[in-house]
């Protein structure tokens, strides 16, 4: 099982990134509309936010668990395989992590994205060898249509 913790502030899209990753992993290999023909490999994912009263701007976390078998542990992740910070001000340098930086904001500016969540997702995808097309599928399944194209382009750029 691969476990990812996302750190961000309310409004930065950390939980959306957590969901996108889960959807990309579990459904990325499927046909566009999510229809199944039973021939796909079994892929499972869980994604959930820290269930607190956090409001816009407050530090929050989100979690993604990826596995080839059904995931039963719905607890928060205690030992993550990867940690992603969507806001560098939350990062205290305590361990290896993917931390938002100038390059990420530059990509966001280029594609006129208000937040860098899909860009950080792209960076993570590269690290865990997830195909860009699977992330694109996740974006198609989770995000509203008008956000598809620029986010897919940003992901591809981040994965370069």
């Amino acid at each position: 099982m691969l476990q990812i913790v996302w750190h961000g502030r309310g409004g930065q899209g950390a939980f959306t990134a957590a969901r996108l990753l889960g959807a990309a992993y579990a459904l990325g290999g499927m046909k566009e509309n999510g229809r199944t023909d039973g021939g796909e490999p079994e892929k499972y994912a869980l994604a959930f936010p820290s269930f607190g009263p956090e409001r816009r701007g407050a530090p929050m976390r989100a979690f993604t668990k990826l596995s080839d078998v059904l995931i039963h542990d719905r607890s928060e992740i205690a030992r993550a395989d990867f940690v992603v910070f969507l806001d560098e001000t939350l990062y205290a340098g305590e361990r290896d992590a993917l931390v938002a930086g100038p390059d990420d904001y530059a990509i966001a500016e280029k594609f006129r994205l208000p937040v860098i969540n899909t860009i950080m997702l792209g960076r993570l995808a590269k690290k865990i060898d997830m195909p860009a097309e699977h992330i694109a599928q996740g974006i198609r399944l989770v995000m509203p249509g008008r956000m598809h194209e620029k986010n897919m382009l940003a992901v591809r750029e981040a994965m370069k």
Binding site: G22, T36, K43, A47
Partner: peptide, 12 residues
């Protein structure tokens, strides 16, 4: 609550 209601997973 939350462990099912707000947890995203695969559903047919």
């Amino acid at each position: 609550g939350f462990h099912i209601t707000h947890t995203y997973e695969i559903v047919d």
